[in-house]
Write a protein that binds this DNA or RNA. Structure first.
Length: 255
DNA sequence: TTTCTTACA
DNA sequence: TGTAAGTA
């Protein structure tokens, strides 16, 4: 088990010792295990600090984060929380900037097919809003989304299938988003005057809902995938891992 | 030396 | 959020 002393933890998380103590006082960070007088922190603390840091960067206040953490922990399952923080804080190498050239897109998605086929894929990507043509370049509204697509392609999923499922997932997410909006609408806002005196409250609710939805959806998606993977690929995976061990290899996972 | 608490700005 | 004093 990896353990950090407070100074090491602060460095790893890109914050300061002072802030860690501050977060602890506010209940944003669980207390460390104690050995004598010194606190020992682990990866869960590091993940939490990264989550806090990311949310602060996005403009949320400590009070906002505190509310969300409290809300989440009120109905949590320990394993799911750890999984959630893992998902939310996993660093992803974002080699694709908010803008990409035609050549960069072709390279990122390994498009070595016929030119007319490339045009077709690109047309579809534009249609889905994944990239937007702008002069001789393309604007990438969500580099992270594009990165996921590139990862899938690198993993052997045909780009055609990636684009297809991107559209399906977008529709599914719209359904989820609408459910949350309906929920708040019927239970919180009720017959509030959206354009009048309650506008501030409405925007506050909306502002707080965004990360909440992300926090709720992430573990469900992770759990759903885990179940499917276990059910359909479990045996194959076991065989592959057994072969890995037999070969005495460490890395080079067979995706 | 480092950690921790408390306090002040 | 940074800094400082006094401890363990």
């Amino acid at each position: 088990m990896v353990e950090y002393r407070i100074d090491e933890l602060a460095q790893s998380a890109g914050t300061t010792v002072r802030n860690i103590r501050s977060y602890q006082d506010r209940g944003l960070l669980p207390p460390p295990r104690l050995r004598g007088r010194v606190g020992l922190y682990d990866d869960a603390h590091l993940a939490r600090l990264r989550l806090i840091g990311q949310m602060l960067e996005r403009g949320y206040t400590l009070a906002n984060i505190s509310d969300l953490v409290a809300a989440w922990e009120a109905g949590r399952d320990v394993g799911a929380v750890l999984g959630l923080e893992q998902v939310l804080t996993d660093p992803w190498t974002d080699e694709i900037p908010g803008w990409a050239t035609y050549e960069e897109l072709v390279a990122a998605f390994g498009l070595d097919t016929a030119p007319d086929e490339i045009e077709e894929r690109l047309r579809r990507a534009v249609e889905l809003g994944l990239v937007e043509p702008d002069g001789d370049r393309f604007r990438v509204p969500s580099p992270r989304l594009l990165h996921v697509g590139a990862e899938l392609v690198a993993g052997g999923v045909p780009l055609e299938a990636v684009l297809e499922i991107a559209d399906e997932i977008r529709r599914d997410c719209e359904v989820i988003a609408n459910r949350f909006v309906d929920l708040v609408d019927t239970h919180v806002l009720k017959d509030a005057d959206l354009l009048g005196a309650d506008a501030g409250r409405v925007s506050e609710v909306i502002r707080r809902m965004r990360p909440l939805v992300q926090m709720v959806v992430n573990p469900f998606v992770a759990r759903g995938m885990e179940q499917r993977v276990r059910a359909e690929l479990g045996d194959k995976l076991e065989v592959l891992m057994a072969e890995e061990r037999a070969d005495g290899r460490v890395g080079d996972p067979a995706v």
